[in-house]
């Protein structure tokens, strides 16, 4: 199953795992060439390398984010 939900009207893809799929977010970020750690105040996951901690994720509501690099 794809980890991303199809593009929205802005052409962005949404993370399928919502806001608490720690394993999936760490797995994707582990292989992502675009990953950049965000500012310390904005980190969510305990493991540093996670989409939840990436500068290029944009939260669209409390439950999900879009990736600005996909």
């Amino acid at each position: 199953m794809d980890d991303w939900i199809k593009k929205n009207k802005r052409g962005q893809v949404r993370f399928r795992g919502g806001s608490h799929d720690w394993l999936l977010a760490a797995g994707i970020a582990g292989n992502c060439p675009h990953f950049v750690l965000d500012d310390e105040d904005e980190l969510l996951a305990e493991e540093e390398r996670s989409c939840y901690n990436c500068r290029f994720r944009r939260w669209i509501d409390r439950y999900s984010f879009v990736c600005m690099k996909r």
Binding site: N8, D41, E42, F56, R57, R58, W59, I60, D61
Partner: peptide, 18 residues
């Protein structure tokens, strides 16, 4: 202190609206 504001696709924040 950092304060969280509304997360909404129609608000032009950078990534987390704080």
């Amino acid at each position: 202190t950092r304060h969280q504001l509304l997360l909404h696709p129609d608000i032009a924040y950078t990534s987390h609206n704080s």
